[in-house]
Nucleic acid binder design. Sequence first.
DNA 1: AAAAGTAGTATATTTATTTATACTAAGGAG
DNA 2: CTCCTTAGTATAAATAAATATACTACTTTT
Lengths: 109, 109
Amino acid sequence: MDKDLESMKITLDVVCGKWKAMILLKLNNGTLRFGGEIKKSIPLINHQTLIKQLRELEEDGLITKKSYPVVPPWVEYSLTDYGKEIQPLLNQMVEWGEMHLDKDKTPPS
Amino acid sequence: MDKDLESMKITLDVVCGKWKAMILLKLNNGTLRFGGEIKKSIPLINHQTLIKQLRELEEDGLITKKSYPVVPPWVEYSLTDYGKEIQPLLNQMVEWGEMHLDKDKTPPS
DNA sequence: AAAAGTAGTATATTTATTTATACTAAGGAG
DNA sequence: CTCCTTAGTATAAATAAATATACTACTTTT
């Protein structure tokens, strides 16, 4: 596997999968609380799946977590500076998807 | 799920997954033959997985297939004009991956 | 007392994706 | 004849990912 493919693979691992890119996209707008905000803005995601994705994104340094020791728990997630660097890529993914949606489904003969 | 997330999902479906982006990246350089070229340039991909991914990319209009009726079979795949439009996104994925590779693994404290 | 509220854990199950193995077609080489 | 070649199929098995369900902790509200 050559260098480009290796690099591509890294990106696929970190931002692809079914949910990570969506989570990062939502965090572009600022800090979000776990349940009330992230979970509701991505309604189809499962509770544990979300937790797992968040933990992995945290391990990869893209997001940070801030827990307030209150009851009931209050936990916020936000992009790190590093995580913000992926924003252009995410935007381009959204743009391409829009374009693909608009495209006529009739194949170009 | 809002419009941005929907669009994002389209992109994830079409180019993410474990291999599609890599296949498209390889096809950026021009037409490739199935076994001798694609399979060897992405050595870890499995035979049927490759066939399946290629078929899906074809169905989505990103690539075309040209079969020559010779024995043994000779089949070529190439990007459609539409498929070429995804090139900037792929390049950005490669760039981000490179950057992430180079990044120190020490977390930003 | 009992219930509600929230982030997270534990476990088991389902679903999706990838892989391994063996097979087909059709002609050329030996 | 038999074997080799290549794209593709068929089937089953293995792996990975996502999900459902139930649970914990701790305080406030009822």
